[in-house]
Measured scan of single mutants.
Amino acid sequence: SAVVMEEGSPGEVPVLVEPPGLEDVEAALGMDRRTDAYSRSSSVSSQEEKSLHAEELVGRGIPIERVVSSEGGRPSVDLSFQPSQPLSKSSSSPELQTLQDILGDPGDKADVGRLSPEVKARSQSGTLDGESAAWSASGEDSRGQPEGPLPSSSPRSPSGLRPRGYTISDSAPSRRGKRVERDALKSRATASNAEKVPGINPSFVFLQLYHSPFFGDESNKPILLPNESQSFERSVQLLDQIPSYDTHKIAVLYVGEGQSNSELAILSNEHGSYRYTEFLTGLGRLIELKDCQPDKVYLGGLDVCGEDGQFTYCWHDDIMQAVFHIATLMPTKDVDKHRCDKKRHLGNDFVSIVYNDSGEDFKLGTIKGQFNFVHVIVTPLDYECNLVSLQCRKDMEGLVDTSVAKIVSDRNLPFVARQMALHANMASQVHHSRSNPTDIYPSKWIARLRHIKRLRQRICEEAAYSNPSLPLVHPPSHSKAPAQTPAEPTPGYEVGQRKRLISSVEDFTEFV
């Protein structure tokens, strides 16, 4: 048969007729292969192709491409040299491709048809291009793949890379869960390890502090508590009631339409708007009261037996805890006409967050109470924005700035309102402590230090009264110190430094 060459192609190359033996071998191979691939376009007849790359030819070592076609129900084999250009295909004639002069020997084609199974398996396991790669995943090629499931790999992101949580363990979102698992493993320790309690022994800490320079003076030496005195035992138990972190309780009120001037209507609300609910979820963490331990979680007086509701929101960081007394989460009882059960919590909070959804101005004093010092007013606006402002009593104007209003988005509203309420509550605590000038409020841990110092002074006084020969370590507060001759004046800087060093040991009130 003659071949018409394309323009620009090399000279004529004689194409030899395939021997009958080659056709029989390739026909047997075509019957084993699956003929249901995917359909081509209507211009080209339905056909199945599979590209198999052999590394070497037997005796020649030339890479070839073998295409199996099922045109007219008769499979045909096409061998081509890759750099050459194939002729145009037609549905009426068999596929013809040019070969190099080196394939002119018909014996070479017979060798190609009689490829060993080793070469076929190696060509099938190679990388296939384009559409033949999808075909190689079918059941027909499963014989050339190794048996057994593939090893499982770690989760992959859409980009093909490992997620960040699997790369950096410290930033993994499941870090707290692993800590819980470690605690569970520790709890399952053997009885021999049960006595080993991690941490620092208080006796060891005391020993280090006792021999430090801070205890060089007799006034700073630790003293032993009497065991037989019940009054001192009660004082030590009272110390446990003062937490070592700051605590805040903040009221949250929802004002519906037409309720801006009605205290009873505001306290009777059992739910609010959708934006109000989203605002609550951002204030803190939802907790169930019956599962809380009052000595570990500050509840601000809420009952854990269901008297004040089942849930509330709280927030904490390293040095403070805040609980929100939310009116809509507290039960509304029919027998309580004046809502006294709610007001006994909300009316005693220094700061209230008022979500004013009424469309009218909310005035300070609508919720009557002796300790309502500051109101954080949240007014929802259009386009997911809110107006946040402050209202306070006249005696609080020096501590709280009420002249600045803020426009905040719904997303950042819980954070801004919480921070403003916490700052206002700190100012309210300082303002409330002014009624007792001898006990200015600095912080909870300073209050613990003052309680310890008062307890020490009482013990020293009782020891001096029981044994008059012992001198008083600290003179009583009601006694007057003996007159001392004025010492020589020293520079102001040295006096300030000495006073600062003494105050650092005794108390921190002056620095606050």
Rank of each mutant, 00 (worst) to 15 (best):
P486A: 12
V236P: 06
V404C: 13
P491I: 09
E510A: 10
S389M: 12
R275K: 02
S469A: 12
I266C: 04
L253C: 04
V376H: 00
A327H: 04
L283Q: 00
I440A: 10
L364S: 15
N467H: 11
Q429L: 08
P414S: 12
C292I: 12
A251N: 03
L280E: 01
L238M: 13
Y441M: 14
D336M: 06
H338N: 14
C392D: 01
D439L: 08
H316S: 15
D303H: 07
I287N: 08
L455Y: 12
A327T: 04
E360G: 05
Y313N: 03
R344K: 12
A417N: 00
H271Y: 15
L399C: 14
L289Q: 15
T312E: 09
L238R: 15
L253N: 02
R456M: 05
V376A: 01
D308N: 10
R458H: 14
V351L: 01
V323C: 07
T485V: 12
V255A: 03
G359W: 02
V376N: 01
F508L: 14
Y274F: 10
S433I: 07
T509G: 14
Q429D: 03
P491V: 09
N425M: 03
S477M: 09
D303L: 02
P442W: 03
V335P: 09
V473M: 13
P294V: 15
G284K: 06
C392E: 02
F508P: 14
W315C: 04
E257W: 08
T281G: 13
L299H: 15
L346M: 10
S235P: 06
A464Q: 07
R275V: 00
E494H: 11
V304I: 07
E307V: 07
R498S: 14
D357G: 02
R234V: 06
L299T: 10
E278L: 05
E270W: 04
E228Q: 09
T366C: 07
F232I: 13
V378G: 00
Q310L: 15
F324N: 02
R418E: 02
I459V: 14
P331H: 08
V404E: 07
I266N: 03
S244I: 13
L387I: 09
S469G: 14
L264C: 10
M426Y: 06
R456Q: 15
F279A: 01
Y493W: 13
D303E: 08
S244T: 14
E228M: 10
T509E: 08
C305L: 06
H375F: 15
K337M: 13
K499W: 06
L413P: 00
T438E: 14
P482F: 09
I440N: 09
K394R: 11
T366M: 05
Q457N: 13
G347M: 15
K444W: 10
N269E: 03
R448L: 06
C392W: 04
Q419D: 06
P294N: 13
K221N: 15
S260M: 14
I242M: 15
E263C: 02
I287K: 09
P243T: 05
E233D: 10
P442G: 09
Q237L: 08
S262K: 06
V354W: 01
A487P: 11
F371L: 15
A424W: 03
N412P: 01
T277A: 07
F324M: 03
R434K: 11
N227L: 11
D401H: 05
A424V: 04
M426W: 03
Q241F: 06
F362V: 05
D401G: 09
E384M: 06
S433K: 06
Y493S: 15
A405C: 14
K368V: 07
G282V: 01
L280W: 02
Y276P: 01
V335E: 14
D318V: 06
K249N: 15
L299N: 14
L329I: 04
L399T: 05
V297F: 15
V255D: 00
G369H: 08
L390D: 00
V236E: 09
L472G: 15
D240P: 05
Q237G: 08
Y254K: 00
S479M: 12
Y245T: 06
R339M: 15
K394H: 12
I223Y: 10
E233K: 14
